[in-house]
């Protein structure tokens, strides 16, 4: 189960993936190879339909690996069992495009419920840790609000707290800023970056949003199922301005 390169969080090689059968078969990923090191913040960009999200779901153990080798957090995903995939997913913090919070719970409950996955954590400890991380994302005053009473940006901040509260070994984020306006999106990404740096958690984030590219250590670009380019990001800047890049959804033309 242990990978050869035990240092890397994710290593993959020769990954091919298709949807459908027979004539309707459509290949999405072609011979993808990637490696993500501990503590690295990696952005995965590319136009719609380029296969970014499919790659993300494979790494998350949400889809069955068809061809190639993929090791995530020490789990080999080739022919992995459902139980094994569930164990892997519990080590990952997820952030979704929409916040995907449970609407019938308060902000605090949404975060604290994650400890139901860690039976060793007592109720008291669970509540304390959930409270602390909500304070860190700036929602200390609104912890007991039902999520329906929070703004979009606040909801996504709760989602970040939920993803990180269990001290995951890897954070996977899918377009976390897509549903937010520029300012809130910026805040959310900065928050994610600083928390991840603090906890030394690697992040793999799929995004179209050119405004947030500056948080990355590394940017991987995808096109038509191929990894086309990998470049160093401008990670040193903690509060890097958005560089005045316009909000364009299609950044295929942007090269690094």
């Amino acid at each position: 189960m242990k990978t050869d390169d035990s240092k890397a969080v994710i290593t993959g090689a020769g990954i091919n993936f298709s949807f459908g059968q027979g004539e309707l078969r459509k290949q999405i990923l072609f011979d993808v190879e990637l490696a993500i090191q501990p503590g690295e913040i990696v952005l995965l960009t590319g136009p719609s339909g380029s296969g970014k999200t499919t790659l993300l779901t494979l790494i998350a153990g949400l889809r069955k690996l068809q061809e190639g080798r993929l090791d995530v957090l020490g789990h080999s995903l080739h022919n992995a069992s459902q139980t094994d995939l569930l164990k892997l997913r519990r080590k990952i913090g997820f952030i979704f495009q929409a916040h995907n919070l449970l609407p019938y719970l308060t902000a605090l409950q949404n975060v604290q419920v994650m400890f139901d996955l860690q039976p060793g954590v007592t109720i008291k400890e669970g509540r304390e840790r959930a409270t602390r991380i909500l304070q860190q994302v700036g929602l200390g005053e609104r912890m007991n609000y039902h999520v329906s009473r929070l703004s979009g940006g606040q909801k996504q901040r709760v989602a970040i707290a939920r993803a990180l509260v269990g001290r995951p070994e890897l954070v996977l984020a899918d377009e976390p800023t897509a549903a937010l306006d520029g300012t809130s999106g910026r805040e959310v990404v900065n928050l994610l970056q600083s928390l991840a740096r603090e906890q030394k958690r690697p992040i793999l984030m799929v995004t179209h949003d050119v405004r947030v590219l500056d948080i990355a250590d590394r940017i991987i670009e995808m096109q038509d199922g191929h990894l086309t380019a990998s470049s160093r990001g401008s990670s040193s800047a903690e509060n890097h301005p958005a560089k005045g890049v316009q909000n364009e959804s299609d950044i295929a033309a942007v090269t690094f």
């Binding site: 449970l102 719970l105 419920v113 139901d116 954590v121 509540r127």
Partner: peptide
């Protein structure tokens, strides 16, 4: 449900 959050009840009474 080790955190003592009564999810089923909270979901029921939500609607």
């Amino acid at each position: 449900m080790s955190q003592g959050i009564p999810l089923s009840w909270l979901q029921l009474k939500h609607e």
